[in-house]
C-alpha cells in the first residue's frame, strides 16, 4: 500500500467560471470510461444480493476448491466451497462503504481545518498547519494499524483510522486553494462590500473548491480501498466470514501453490476497483487542468 495517490495532490486549477463536470466529460473519453467503471462498481455493490448466484457465506464442503469456469461456479469455489464469484460481488459491499465513510471523515475534518487555516490565516494557520505536519509525519499505515489494534479490529474502526490518515491531504489542498482564491479579485470585491466570512466561505469559496476536491475525493477513495484491503489482509479489518477482498487474499495466499485463483480473483477485484477510482481522479484532473491540455 502506498499513500502516494493521495500525496500527489491535485493542482487542478480553480477558475472563476466553474466548469460543470458533466459538460467536461463530453470532450474527455477517459473521464467517461472511468466514470462508467465507478458507476458499475456502485451498481454491483448495490445489487449484489440480487445478482449473486449463491450465498457468499454458505459453506459447502463437498464443492471446495472448484477451479474457475466450473458449472454454476463461474470463478470457482474456495476452501469451504463458497462461491468465489458471489463473494467477490459481495466484497464490493464492504469496500465501497468503507471508502465512502473514510473519505467523508477525511474530507470533512481536513476541509474544515483547511478552510479555517486558509481563510483566517495568522495564528490559526500556524497552529493548525503544524498539527497537520505532525499528522503527516506519522506513518499512515502504521498509524492506521495502531489505531485499529488499539480500538479493536473491525470495519468501523478501520474506517475511522483510514479517515484520520486522509485528513492532512484535504487540509493542505483546501488551504492552498483558499489562499489562491483569496487573491482573486471577485473575492476581494465581495469582501470589500462587507460580506461576512460565513457567506463568503459558503457562497464563493466552497463552490470554487468543488472541482479540485472532487478530483482528490476520487483519488483518495482509491487510497481508502487499498488501505481497507491492507488492514483486512493483515487481519485488522473485516473479520471472517465477511466476504472482504483483503481478507480473501489473506486466506487465499495459504493455498497459493495449488489453487492460486483464491488469491488472484479478489486481488484482481481490488486492483480493478482502485484503478477505476484512480483513473477517474486522474482523468478529471487532466480535463480540469488547462495547462496539461495539449
Amino acid at each position: 500500500m502506498s499513500t502516494a495517490p493521495a500525496l500527489v495532490a491535485t493542482q487542478a486549477s480553480i477558475r472563476q467560471t466553474r466548469i460543470h463536470l458533466l459538460e467536461l466529460a463530453r470532450g474527455h473519453p477517459r473521464v467517461i470510461l472511468a466514470g462508467s467503471l465507478v458507476l458499475l462498481l456502485f451498481l454491483i455493490a448495490l445489487l449484489a444480493p440480487f445478482i449473486s448466484p449463491h450465498d457468499p457465506i454458505a459453506v459447502n464442503a463437498d464443492n471446495a476448491y472448484l477451479p474457475p469456469l466450473s458449472p454454476s461456479h463461474l470463478l470457482g469455489t474456495d476452501e469451504l466451497g463458497r462461491d468465489l464469484f458471489s463473494r467477490v460481488l459481495w466484497g464490493a459491499r464492504v469496500s465501497l462503504p468503507v471508502a465512502f465513510v473514510a473519505v467523508a471523515v477525511g474530507l470533512v475534518a481536513g476541509g474544515v481545518i483547511g478552510l479555517i487555516s486558509g481563510y483566517f490565516g495568522g495564528v490559526f494557520d500556524l497552529l493548525l498547519m503544524r498539527l497537520i505536519d505532525a499528522l503527516l509525519a506519522f506513518p499512515a499505515l502504521i498509524l492506521a494499524i495502531a489505531i485499529v489494534a488499539a480500538l479493536g479490529p473491525d470495519l468501523r474502526n478501520a474506517m475511522i483510522a483510514i479517515g484520520i490518515v486522509a485528513i492532512p491531504v484535504y487540509a493542505r489542498l483546501v488551504r492552498a486553494l483558499v489562499l489562491q482564491l483569496k487573491q482573486m479579485e471577485f473575492i476581494a470585491a465581495t469582501r470589500s462590500l462587507g460580506a461576512t466570512p460565513t457567506s463568503i466561505i459558503l457562497r464563493h469559496l466552497i463552490p470554487n473548491l468543488l472541482n479540485p476536491v472532487i478530483v482528490q475525493v476520487s483519488l483518495s477513495a482509491g487510497f481508502a480501498i487499498l488501505a481497507e484491503a491492507t488492514l483486512s489482509f493483515l487481519g485488522l479489518g473485516a473479520q471472517v466470514p465477511t466476504p472482504d477482498w483483503g481478507q480473501m487474499i489473506n486466506t487465499g495466499a495459504t493455498f497459493l501453490a495449488n489453487d492460486p485463483w483464491l488469491a488472484i480473483v479478489p486481488g484482481a477485484a481490488i486492483s480493478v476497483t482502485v484503478f477505476s477510482f484512480n483513473l477517474l481522479g486522474d482523468s478529471l484532473r487532466d480535463a480540469l487542468d488547462p495547462r496539461l491540455r495539449s
Binding site: 491492507t230 489482509f233 482502485v274 484503478f275
Partner: peptide, 22 residues
C-alpha cells in the same frame, strides 16, 4: 502509472511468488 498505484503491493507480492517462486 495509474495501474502501478492501484494494485496493492501485497497482491503484487503474491502474484510474483506464484509465478516466479511457485
Amino acid at each position: 502509472a495509474v495501474g502501478g498505484v492501484s494494485i496493492p503491493n501485497f497482491f503484487i507480492g503474491i502474484v510474483l511468488i506464484f509465478f516466479l517462486s511457485v
